[in-house]
Write a protein that binds this DNA or RNA. Structure first.
Lengths: 189, 189
DNA sequence: AAATCAAGGAACGTCTACGTTCCCTATTTA
DNA sequence: TAAATAGGGAACGTAGACGTTCCTTGATTT
């Protein structure tokens, strides 16, 4: 499929030059095709880059929610799929998206709608199941506690360019999130 | 000073077009000068952008560490200066830096050396004073607990483009960091 | 098997931005 | 006060990328 070749070429181009520095000519060369083929599908280079972003993120969306019967394992598994995706191309896309969103706020909204909210819904479900099982006290959850592991992962990615390993992910859950969820004071201020 | 005018113009240019999309011609126009004046000081547009980054960050470095006598207030104050700087131009710079660093790892290192480490040293000092005062138990500190508030601030910035307000900063410290520091289990895994 | 049609690939003109060079002006020094 | 020097601003050539058009090739249908 030529579309796949174009996406792969565009991803490589973006990885090397960024979204603003990407060139249709080079992307066509990378994909082993001509520019006209690209312009027949996308009106300009920005639209192509955006399509690459969205498609990459769509493909990275986990098809089903984990339900291991343990809140701890649910969270570890969910985070692990996230970090795994960051390793395979999504990391560079995410970092490019951050600067693009700084100039185009609608990107933030779309990203939030497609990824932030689904992830949050998924996590809330896991928390409710844990409450029903009596794993954590039944009380309102601090939304910042829920964001905490993802925030640490993203923070490490943007600061050092590396992605936390499995041991660190487990540490986030066991040493930070679960203690906060178990203590009665971790409610909305 | 022309240098200041150029920096202001370059910052506006970067805010609008990003580092990769910045143009020397437009920056010169914004600064009310000619291109030759810019090329006499910087070899190319990338070097200028990098200089703007570094200078903005340098200017954003707090000259002195807070020592209020209370760990809680030390942390709140330190975080507040950080969020305040993010509001005034540093936010857009930081987000541009993230994507630039994705293509040039040496940027990550330089950023870490100039900002991450000093901030960490500052925080360690505050924690040691708090231990000496008996505010928190004297035990090894989980480094991720220290990163936690900055991670939440950065995470919110890159996701929504907004910066946490004072109430949220206080919430991070009071509801997340301090409880984790007080419990004996919050040591390095 | 032949003809039609759709799609890929190369060549073209235009425009923008780069980096340089030249000229002018203002300031400083003798 | 006059000359010299340094620095700011405009004009210039060049290169690369955009977006378009045309030609060729391969697949599909009758």
């Amino acid at each position: 499929m030529l579309r796949d070749a174009v996406f792969a070429g565009a991803l490589a181009e973006i990885a090397e030059f960024g979204v603003r520095g990407a060139s249709m000519d080079r992307i066509a060369k990378r994909a082993g095709t001509g520019k006209a083929a690209l312009y027949r599908r996308w009106p300009n280079v920005r639209a192509l880059a955006l399509d690459v972003f969205i498609s990459t993120m769509e493909a990275a969306l986990p098809p089903s929610l984990p339900d291991t019967g343990s809140l701890r394992d649910d969270m570890v598994e969910s985070l692990t799929t996230f970090t795994t995706q960051l390793h395979s191309g999504l990391g560079i896309v995410l970092r490019e998206l951050i600067s693009e969103a700084a100039h185009d706020p609608s990107l933030s909204e779309e990203f939030q709608t497609r990824f932030g909210l689904p992830k949050q819904v998924e996590l809330i479900g896991a928390l409710q199941r844990a409450m029903a099982r009596g794993e954590i006290p039944t009380q309102p959850i601090d939304p910042y506690v829920m964001q905490l592991p993802a925030a640490l992962v993203v923070h490490q990615l943007v600061l050092t360019g590396t992605v936390p390993g499995h041991a660190e992910v487990e540490h986030f859950v066991d040493a930070l999130v679960l203690p906060l969820l178990r203590q009665p004071a971790a409610v909305i201020a």
